[in-house]
Amino acid sequence: MSVTLLIEQLINGLQLGTMLFLMASGLTLVFGVMGLINLAHGSFYMVGAYVTALTSVSTGSFPLGLAAGVLAAAAAGAIVELLVIRRLYGRSHLDQVLATFALILIFSEGTRWLFGSSPLWLSPPEALSGSVALPGGSRYPVYRLVIIAVGVVVAAGLYLLIAHTRLGMRIRAGESDREIIGALGVNIRRLYTLVFALGAALAGLAGSLVGALQSVQVGMGEPVLILAFVVIVIGGIGSIKGALLGALLVGMVDTLGRVFLPALFGQFMSPSDAAGAGTALAAMLIYILMAVILAFKPKGLFAAHD
């Protein structure tokens, strides 16, 4: 196990973590402010990726596609909030889960109906498609470094927004007491729509960025959604800081587990069995992490409502 490999895997973990943060921050905001469990968050991820793929192919410009993807996801979020989600705030979590699960089905089958079941083509822009040298002689894709940078910028932006702006103050107020800020004359309905659209835009950004690395296809959002839920449960529901820390933790544990567990098992098993057993345990590792953290901190690392 060389130092080069370790460095590369640490960057990989960081990259997975920042991508998860983009998903989880929107999810945790919506849960923290509105108390809503939104399973359809992965659909905005898919919307972002599809619109980016379509726009960047037709215009030939990836940045334009990225902007279109983020805006489309935000618009989809706002429309869904106005039409459906708005009616769910007063209902039980089970109703919310049912309704947002229905939204997943509608988005998935609608996308299939419009664009077919074949995956779409989307690649990183030419300028970012190469790789750079890492210390130790290895190489690393530029595009993945860009994703990390975008994640850092978004995290800083969210911190500024929530800690230093009027909107952020209202979001924080909404998290701690919904009724009172309504009574104080804040237009709570508009605030909810805004927060929901912001969350959807972040998911759309993640989908657009990652779509260029992976395949743009129906149902691409759901595997990420599951990880994002693990992240916000670990980080503490409603906490942006928790989402950031949880995302980095999950990203690191998942990546390093996938690499080093099979190697560890290989010390005392045949290569074929070690690969199988190591992979199986690596797949469980983040859930084990979640269970351990919840055993000591039942509300997650930074619960918003302590």
């Binding site: 490999l5 990259q15 997975l16 290895s138 993945r144 690395l213 992976q214 690499v259 099979p262």
Partner: peptide, 22 residues
């Protein structure tokens, strides 16, 4: 040289690619 098993439905292969490189 080696056998790598991934998860079914996995979408990110950065960790595996690093192992292949090494």
């Amino acid at each position: 040289a080696d056998e790598i098993y991934t998860q079914l439905g996995q979408t990110d292969y950065a960790a595996e690619i690093a192992r292949i490189r090494a």
